[in-house]
Lab assay of single mutants.
Amino acid sequence: KKYKIKVYVKDKKTKKWKKIKEIEVDTKEEALEAIKKLPPNYEVKIVP
C-alpha cells in the first residue's frame, strides 16, 4: 500500500494554495518522516 504526500505552498500574490510536489512512500512512518523535513510554511496532505 502506497501513500502519496501532496505538498502545497501558499502563493503570496494570489493567496491560493498551489501544489508544488508529490512524494510517494510505502509506509505511514515514512510519510511522517518526510513531512518533518519540509519547511513549516508548507501545507501537506497524506493520501492513502
Rank of each mutant, 00 (worst) to 15 (best):
I35N: 01
E29T: 07
V47R: 06
I23L: 09
T14H: 05
E29Q: 12
K21Q: 13
N41K: 12
E24P: 06
P40L: 09
V47A: 05
K15T: 04
K1P: 10
K36Q: 10
A34S: 06
K4V: 14
K36M: 11
W17L: 05
I23A: 02
N41W: 12
L32W: 14
I23V: 07
K13N: 08
K1V: 14
N41G: 14
K37H: 13
V7W: 04
V7P: 00
V44G: 09
E33D: 11
K28I: 13
L38H: 02
P48V: 15
K10H: 08
A31S: 03
E22P: 00
E24Y: 15
V47Y: 12
E30L: 08
K13I: 12
N41Y: 14
N41L: 10
P48Y: 12
V7S: 01
I35H: 02
K16E: 05
E43T: 15
V9G: 05
L32E: 10
W17M: 05
K12M: 09
I46H: 02
E43V: 15
E33V: 09
Y3T: 02
V9Y: 11
K2L: 10
Y42G: 03
K4G: 02
K37C: 07
N41F: 14
K13Q: 08
I5A: 01
K6M: 14
I20N: 01
K36L: 10
Y3L: 06
K36T: 08
E43G: 15
V44Q: 02
K15R: 13
I20E: 02
A34N: 04
K12Q: 12
K36D: 07
K2N: 08
K13W: 09
V44P: 03
L32D: 09
I35V: 10
K36H: 08
Y3A: 01
P48I: 15
K21E: 11
A34Q: 11
Y3F: 14
L38M: 12
A34I: 15
L32T: 07
K21C: 14
K19Y: 10
I46K: 01
E43S: 15
P48S: 14
E22Q: 05
L38V: 05
K19I: 09
K45M: 13
K13P: 03
L32Y: 14
K6D: 06
A31V: 14
V9L: 10
I20L: 10
I20V: 14
V25S: 03
K2A: 11
K18Y: 13
E29A: 11
L38Y: 12
V44Y: 14
K15V: 02
A34C: 12
K1M: 14
E30K: 07
K6N: 10
K28S: 07
A34L: 15
K36C: 10
Y8D: 00
E24L: 13
K37Y: 07
A34V: 15
K37V: 08
I5V: 11
K10I: 14
K16W: 05
V9W: 06
E30I: 05
K19A: 04
P40V: 10
I20R: 03
W17C: 04
I35G: 02
N41D: 12
V9A: 10
I35F: 03
E22G: 01
K4A: 05
K16A: 06
P39F: 14
I46A: 01
E29P: 03
V7Q: 00
K36N: 08
K15H: 13
A34Y: 15
W17Q: 01
K2D: 03
K36W: 04
K10M: 13
K6F: 15
E43Y: 15
E43K: 15
P48C: 15
P48E: 14
K19F: 14
K2P: 06
A34M: 15
K45H: 13
A31K: 01
K21F: 14
K37S: 13
W17R: 03
Y8T: 00
K1L: 12
Y42T: 08
E29Y: 07
Y42D: 02
V9E: 07
E24N: 10
V25K: 03
K18W: 09
K4S: 07
I5F: 06
K10C: 10
D11A: 05
E24G: 09
P39L: 11
K16P: 00
I46S: 01
A34F: 15
